[in-house]
């Protein structure tokens, strides 16, 4: 919640890769280390990434994340 409030004040528009990395670093500051998940979908091809802690998606929605097939977890 707090990250989202601060996020809009940062002069850069939303991009899943950039936002996920920023959220990972922010949470690491509090010693929280979630997963950074990369997913793809085909026909038409699209790629996306998000931050997930256990079964909870921290940025974006469950629905959106479910529509991608994870190919890499950091």
């Amino acid at each position: 919640m707090r990250f989202n409030e601060f996020r809009a004040a940062f002069p850069r528009n939303y991009l899943c890769l950039y936002d996920s990395l920023a959220l990972m670093l922010y949470l690491a500051y509090f010693s929280v280390f979630p997963n950074w998940v990369f997913g793809v979908r085909s026909n038409p091809f699209m790629a996306h990434c998000w931050v997930q802690y256990g079964r909870t998606v921290l940025n974006g929605t469950d629905e959106e994340a479910r529509s991608y097939t994870p190919i890499m977890i950091v």
Partner: peptide, 13 residues
């Protein structure tokens, strides 16, 4: 602020 959240952009945009 609402507009920024709605449009998924920063306040500055």
């Amino acid at each position: 602020a609402d507009n920024a959240r709605y449009s998924h952009v920063s306040y500055w945009t």
